[in-house]
Amino acid sequence: MKTMPFARKTVFALLLGLLAMVFLLPYLWMLGSAFKPRSELFTYVLPVSWKTFIPLSPTLDNFKRLLVDLGFLRNITNTLLLAVVTVSGSVLVCAMTAFVLAMIEFPGRKLIFFLIMFTMMVPFEARMIPTFLVVQNLGLSNKFVALFLPWLADAFMIFLFTNHFSEIPFDLYNAAIIDGCPHYKIFWKVMLPNIGPALISGGLIKFFFAWDSYVWPLIILRSPKWQVIGVAIANLFTDQSIEWELIFAGSLLSTVPVVVLFFVLQKYYIAGMMSGGLKE
């Protein structure tokens, strides 16, 4: 009788391990292969063994080739700049609007709310072509600003912040008015510090989004000057080259910052996503 639960526990643990492997295996394969010389890459494909995942003679050549010869360093700094600008810009712009929508009643408030909600209904894929034409007509194509300007006003973030501003007791607003604080100052002096966690959630989600840029920079940029890491990796992949080691190394470089951020700020990411899911 005592061995039964133990056996069941072991089977359960094995199943859990298997499940975790479904999600981890691609990462382990990428991690090991990124440090393999090409000669080793295709040698241990079959049968699958520890040699498939662990480099026998680890090398940094793949990274050197990517960063120095293939201009990945530029792609990475471009992407980092894009992510920082997108995050700070959209958090600021969206929080400002959310503050007004949540705390002030004025004629036109409902209309603005509706327009923002309407933009949520027509996602990027459905307006990719006209957005491309509009940005081109504005003379912005091929410029860095074209990469982030269309993504600053974000309905998801505006609603996320609006919900959080709404939870602040209204007395705080009145108290600030009585203290003689002008309205525009109430936003950043009194209210903004109260929704810190939501700002982190929204900013983090936006960071992952900006880091994920692929289709938009691909169509809007013609010169490689501002090209981002997503497009660079996709190019390596679609070239159908056999330089798999470069794809692995590039993918690893692109994944490390995201995973580190996620590990550190996971709590905020989950909170932000969950409140998005609950919203009606």
Binding site: L24, Y214, I233, A234, I247, S251, S254, V259, F262, Q266
Partner: peptide
């Protein structure tokens, strides 16, 4: 955490590796 990793990993990387 493990199940959420692919969610935050960029689509390009996921597509390339898979």
């Amino acid at each position: 955490t493990v199940i959420l990793l692919p969610v935050v990993t960029s689509m390009v990387v996921v597509t390339a590796i898979l």
